[in-house]
Design a binder for these strands. Structure first.
Lengths: 208, 208
DNA sequence: ACAAAAATTAAACAACTGTTTAATTTAAAC
DNA sequence: GTTTAAATTAAACAGTTGTTTAATTTTTGT
């Protein structure tokens, strides 16, 4: 796993992230990237080996970090619901900052065309699930959360709502009258976040 | 809007749906489609005009139908929660049958590369939101649902959870021990569906 | 200042892209 | 059966694709 990237490489990744997010991996050519980053086409192959390896480098470069934040959260001295709310906030902030790459990831992982060598990414996801599990169990031990929660379905609930909202941005901009990008982003960080927190809280408390 | 399609055209759409879902729109070439459908490359342009128009025809061909089901649901004589549960079931069944095209749609609508001429599709979504609104208001009038529900956020909650689960199929297959496609689909139609219904119910009932 | 290494370049590569053409076959109409 | 229209074909079109090459410039270490 490559972690030592020079400024030029990071610049390439930055441009690639934007373009991949806008037009998809297959929809973006190396020439698109090199033109936008004002470099020669050969530089991508020179630095990363191939277009696919560029994507892998991008994903690894961007997705590390959340894991550490979650592990750290476990030991914080917070009430169960505050901890869950903070977890949701961490997720949203993290993904919101890296919107582009998560969108690509979202699509490429589901594609049968490419089998990305992303064992390390899968490990991160499992670690995150483990952290969530610990937090839920703590809340259950304290008698605050119900006992029969299907923990693996909580992440798709959090991320699913967020992504679906982002994916249908044009539609929600229209029906919620969010006329500027700022208004939209603001809605995400306040109302949508609150909605997700409320949803999870309702799930954890729900009684038949 | 073209609705009269002959058998050959429908066969092409069928193949296109499968390949687009597997490899994405940009990841699928007309030659891929023509080879799989055992037709000449020129036939796609001959019948649909272009690759993009093929996609549009595919989307329109597949997405009509849910709207009518929802409109019909409004007038059914059901308790508010039963009506909502049935609505969720309709959504999931509908999308589950047309998994392929909804996956493409999900991605392509968010892409800046193409501006699909899909006013008719946007109209369908608005109509569906209107139907949901009527059902919620009925439940509110009967005093069963809370009053401060943000209705436009219910659809992303339902669809978001579902899509995120589908998009990360390999991951959930592993952590939930769903070893066959049948086991996975079964989990969606039972446990995941129940989870979504429970989530929405909790949201509609939630009290601070 | 000089040699070695790294970075950058333009050009070429072969394969693939969506689409069009013009010729041929098949089907329908009369 | 002949004429007209529709369907189907192989071939060619002009661009684009990811990647490699070999030459050149820039940077680095001494």
């Amino acid at each position: 796993m490559q972690i030592d990237l020079n400024d030029k490489q990071i610049e390439i990744l930055k441009v690639a992230e934007t373009l991949f997010a806008e037009k998809g991996f297959d929809g973006t050519s190396i020439r698109d990237i090199s033109k936008e980053a004002k470099i020669n086409v050969a530089m991508v192959s020179y630095y990363f080996g191939s277009k696919e390896k560029l994507l892998e480098a991008l994903i690894l470069h961007k997705t590390s970090g959340l894991k550490e934040q979650l592990v750290h959260l476990i030991d914080e001295n917070l009430e169960p619901f505050d901890k869950i709310n903070k977890l949701i906030e961490l997720y949203i902030n993290r993904i919101d900052c890296n919107k582009g790459i998560y969108r690509v990831l979202h699509f490429e992982l589901a594609s049968k065309k490419r089998v990305l060598e992303l064992d390390s990414f899968s490990e991160i996801k499992k670690s995150n699930l483990k952290s969530l599990e610990l937090i839920i169990q703590e809340g259950q031990a304290k008698g605050v959360f119900r006992k029969d929660i299907i923990i693996p379905l909580l992440t798709p609930t959090i991320l699913g709502i967020y992504f679906h909202f982002q994916m249908n941005k044009p539609f929600f901009e229209e029906i919620l009258n969010l006329n500027t990008d700022e208004a939209f982003n603001n809605y995400v960080k306040t109302d949508l976040k609150k909605h997700i927190q409320q949803t999870i809280k309702a799930l954890l408390l729900y009684e038949n």
